[in-house]
């Protein structure tokens, strides 16, 4: 028998929907120079953030973002009861180190670039379950830590594939509270791992588009909604290639004319030489915790479906020629 709050195949609907009372985003210089630069809370002057290594810069960026989100409600870190966060580094060290400094009880998550939706989903479930009243959900990525882990050394003369995406240097944090005013999380759909047999590590959009559409389709079916119910359906980081594929799949799957976009396409200007678009946990995290939630607060957007997409590969499986499985989680955020 399905759970009491479960709806359809993979969706949960919250009885007492958690409210997003505050949020913050910190981005790198390149992201700050993009079309949404003014919508982020802070733009870093450089990628090293005054630290010794890029890895330290990444965790400081995440810590700073979480502190900013809490500060908006005049909370100190110990006022938060739970931190849910993840990133792209091995053993998610950026999140681990940020949690060490903040001393908030911490559950680390890994969902590759889908982490922001994963942390929101888990956070909303734990809150609706009555376990916590104040939860921080966050995610971050850093271009130079991800690049050295997944791709080529920075100084190696390699032509970037046109399908390749640019890992965003960005962090986003959301404060969920059981009571308060702001947009609320109405429902969430936990995605399945979908493998479309793609093997090109420099074309993540193609690897993840199948998972994204699967989750969107499942969400709409589970909720008995039509595609045009949402003011905006936005995927995390499919990029130009992946979102073009997704649009085709919408038609195939009979999803009615959604107002659809992709954070990876939105984050940068055309002139910023980012190949197919932005990617990384930070890409969807900063777009949500910057322009998107800002538009919700302003009433421009009232119903948002955020689908964060992740490519669940490791450099080792990529070397071994294994295909790249994708995952996507959907979070429905609405205004009262």
């Amino acid at each position: 028998m399905p759970g009491r709050k479960k709806r359809g195949q993979q969706t949960v609907v919250f009885d007492t929907p958690p409210t997003i009372t505050a949020w913050a985003s910190v981005v790198g210089p390149k992201e700050g120079a993009g079309p949404w630069g003014r919508d982020f809370d802070a733009v870093m002057d450089d990628y090293i953030f005054g630290e010794k290594t890029w890895e330290i810069a990444e965790y400081k960026m995440l810590r700073n973002t979480i502190e900013r989100a809490l500060d908006k409600r005049n909370f100190r870190p110990d006022d938060a009861e739970l931190l849910l966060a993840g990133d792209l580094l091995n053993q998610i060290v950026a999140s681990n180190f940020a949690a060490r400094d903040l001393a908030i009880p911490f559950l680390g998550l890994y969902g590759a670039c889908s982490t922001m939706a994963e942390s929101l989903t888990v956070g909303a479930m734990l809150m609706d379950g009555g376990y916590f009243e104040r939860i921080v959900a966050a995610a971050c990525s850093h271009h130079y830590t991800a690049e050295r882990q997944y791709r080529f050394p920075t100084e190696q003369g390699v032509q970037k594939a046109q399908t390749a995406q640019w890992t965003a240097t960005a962090a986003g944090a959301v404060l969920l509270e059981a009571r308060g005013s702001g947009p609320y999380i109405k429902a969430a759909t936990v995605g399945k791992v979908i493998d479309m047999g793609q093997t090109d590590a420099s074309d993540m959009g193609s690897a993840m588009a199948g998972a994204a559409v699967h989750t969107i389709k499942t969400h709409l079916d589970d909720m008995a909604l039509s595609g045009d119910y949402y003011d905006l359906i936005v995927t995390g980081d499919l990029g130009k290639v992946g979102s073009a594929i997704a649009r085709q799949l919408f038609v195939r799957e009979g999803i009615v004319s959604p107002n659809y976009s992709d954070c990876g396409v939105l984050l940068y200007d055309r002139e910023q030489a980012v190949g197919s678009g932005g990617s990384g946990c930070g890409c969807s995290a900063c777009m949500l915790c910057g322009p998107l939630l800002k538009k919700m607060r302003g009433g421009e957007l009232r119903k948002l479906l955020l689908i964060c997409t992740g490519a669940l590969m490791s450099p080792i499986t990529a070397f071994q020629g294994e295909s790249i499985p994708g995952i996507a989680h959907a979070v429905a955020i609405e205004l009262w």
Binding site: Q9, A161, I194, G210, I245, L249, E253
Partner: peptide
């Protein structure tokens, strides 16, 4: 039909053909 069955019915080859239309060529 459940949505899952529908999507998996896109054969990998067919998906690949669809995806390759959108990939910029070198």
């Amino acid at each position: 039909q459940s949505p899952e069955q529908k999507l998996i019915q896109i054969e990998r080859q067919e998906y690949e053909d669809l995806a390759s239309q959108f990939r910029p060529k070198p």
